[in-house]
Design a binder for these strands. Structure first.
Length: 569
DNA sequence: GCCGTTTTCGGCCCGACTGTTTTCAGTCG
């Protein structure tokens, strides 16, 4: 319901913008965002206290609250339907084309009755558009290119998988003549799960040199813009990249400006205005006088705010706590001491127990938990009770060969359809740590799935629930689950919930992590490594934890292995 | 249409680049 209402409000914004109406579109856009970021269904807010409760959501006033009420009661919003009747175009379809905004969409509809991407493609190929006022040959070419780009399904990458290429790109830029500093801002610095654009900031004495290099690197598909302060390209790896050259005295301002998401930035700039300043990518100004700009810290400080980590900058409450100097000390990237989900060649991992232990030690870890799959996961050659016991003996043997790292005994036990486990309790009790996870029957009702996982949580041997919602980015949605009920069950039984750090899992998601932290339930951050090279993915689990405002105290494997074990049930 | 330590009326984030113009509208981030 939230998603539908949010989408309708957003489309109303575009439709109003088409008509040239000022400011209202912003209001609807804001309201759309407000609804999208609610953690509770809007109808349950409405049920509590009707219109009044809706109006307490920032960005929702009387009129939009009434429209939401109308949608809850009838499933429609009249104003939307009548706007849509006048301009019946597929807004989602058309506005996803780069370079195409509300005004041009309206022109295209009026001129050629274009409603979908397909209509546009036809008219573009006919060559009729180029003679219309406001359009030309170049516009035609750009739109065709943008449509082609969309069709190729490029445009977003899983951050953890793309990071090596991103870092190597940054290193290349650092080696260009005249370049003094290169940093990445935007969604990469915020450690978002997936990224579409790279925002690169550069200090350079020779802007021409870096821009020439940037726009002519091998593998570039298209140059979107080239100037002395900003250039933009489509990279071959399916991402867009923006590069800006910034003077040193403005570097902090630029970093601030291009790191926060749109909503964070708007909110911060409003605070600046209230204090009589102007904030842009060059600095914080009082009239024409530069007040701050070299570092992010001084900008936030002048605004009466505490500096906050990039991962928090999404306008979901961080502004308020920064104004009150209550920014939490988030878990740091070097604070993990162990990894509690590691697969080996006993099941579907690539490398042996010893190889995994050695690789983990090399990355600085002090302990790992071996968690191979169990028998009902036949495709991975999952272990039964007997084989688990055999593996435990093997671990004792290998432990003597790798004295620098503690190898703990565990398993990734399969949670069956009814919530029972596929290994008997007697064997589970012998393991140091037991993780349990769902690997089958994903399409249950929310009620059934919640009951299933809660039953596993109640097993006295189950210490951690691995990848609790089962999603795989860009491939599979999370299964339906009542996260509040699961957190409650975990709290009652002292069960730990995992943040699976594998780049396309990142499961739990940030919003759920915040709920877990608020409930006082403990988390673990695990790589889910299936090969010796996978321990590096822990970084993205930590990023995820930081986006969920978790501190080191909330994460059990920031402790020594002895203290970690004491956190378990 | 929303909001309030400038305000219940009168504001609303800001700048770069492109393409189509001949001074600027539209789009993007």
């Amino acid at each position: 319901m939230n998603e539908e209402i949010s989408k309708i409000l957003y489309e109303i914004a575009i439709l109003l913008e088409m008509k040239g109406i000022e400011f209202k579109p912003r209001a609807y856009e804001k309201a759309s965002q407000a609804i999208a970021s609610l953690s509770e269904p809007v109808e349950s807010i409405y049920k509590k206290d009707g219109l009044k409760a809706l109006m307490e959501i920032p960005g929702i006033g009387e009129r939009i609250a009434q429209k939401i009420e109308q949608y809850i009661k009838t499933g429609h919003i009249k104003e939307y339907e009548s706007l849509k009747k006048k301009i019946p175009v597929d807004l989602e379809d058309l506005s996803s084309i780069e370079g195409l905004g509300p005004k041009k969409i309206l022109k295209l509809y009026k001129l050629f009755n274009i409603k979908h991407r397909k209509d546009l493609e036809r008219v573009l190929k006919s060559g009729k558009l180029r003679n219309q006022p406001g359009f030309g040959l170049k516009t035609e070419e750009n739109m065709l290119q943008a449509i082609k780009f969309l069709k190729s399904d490029q445009g977003r990458a899983v951050l953890g998988f793309a990071m090596p290429s991103i870092r190597s790109l940054l290193d290349k830029l650092r080696s260009v003549d005249g370049v003094e500093r290169v940093e990445i801002a935007g969604s990469v610095r915020r450690m978002q799960e997936t990224v579409g654009d790279l925002d690169i900031l550069v200090i350079s004495k020779k802007p021409e040199a870096i821009m020439d290099f940037f726009t002519s690197m091998p593998g570039i598909i298209k140059v979107d813009a080239k100037g002395l302060t900003r250039s933009a390209v489509h990279l071959g790896i399916g991402l867009n990249a923006d590069l800006r050259v910034v003077p040193p005295e403005s570097f902090g301002a630029a970093l601030q400006y291009f790191t926060g998401d749109k909503y964070h930035n708007v909110a911060v700039r409003q605070i600046a205005i209230k204090k009589g300043y102007k904030l842009n990518e060059y600095g914080l100004y009082k009239g024409k006088r530069l007040i701050a700009g070299g570092t992010e810290e001084e900008i936030y400080q002048k605004l009466g705010m505490q500096w906050m980590p990039p991962e928090m900058r999404t306008n979901t409450g961080e502004i308020e706590i920064a104004l009150n100097e209550k920014v939490p000390q988030l878990i740091d990237y070097d604070e993990l001491k162990g990894d509690l989900q590691v697969q080996t060649d006993w099941t579907d991992g690539q490398d042996s127990i010893k190889e995994m232990a050695e690789a983990a030690e090399k990355t600085g870890l002090k302990y790992i938990l071996i968690t191979d799959h169990t028998k009902s996961l036949a495709m991975t050659g999952g272990s039964d009770e007997k084989r688990l016991l055999k593996q435990m003996a093997e671990i004792d043997k290998i432990q003597k060969q790798v004295p620098g790292i503690k190898i703990l005994k565990g398993a990734e036990v399969n949670i069956m359809k009814d919530g029972s486990l596929d290994i008997n309790d007697e064997t589970l009790a012998k393991l140091d740590v037991v993780g349990a996870a769902v690997h089958s029957f994903f399409h249950m009702t929310e009620k059934e799935m919640t009951k299933r996982i809660s039953r596993a949580i109640e097993n006295p041997n189950v210490d951690i629930i691995f990848h609790p919602t089962g999603r795989v980015l860009q491939r599979r949605d999370a299964y339906k689950i009542d996260i509040d009920a699961v957190i409650k069950a975990a709290k009652k039984t002292k069960t730990v919930l995992e943040i699976d750090a594998y780049p396309d899992r990142l499961d739990l998601k940030d919003e759920y992590i915040r709920k877990v932290v608020n409930a006082g339930v403990k988390l673990s951050i695990d790589s889910d490594a299936h090969a010796a090279g996978h321990f590096k993915y822990l970084e993205f689990g930590i990023g995820q934890a930081r986006r969920g405002w978790a501190t080191a105290r909330d994460i059990i494997n920031t402790r020594s292995w002895q203290d970690m074990l004491k956190c378990l049930k």
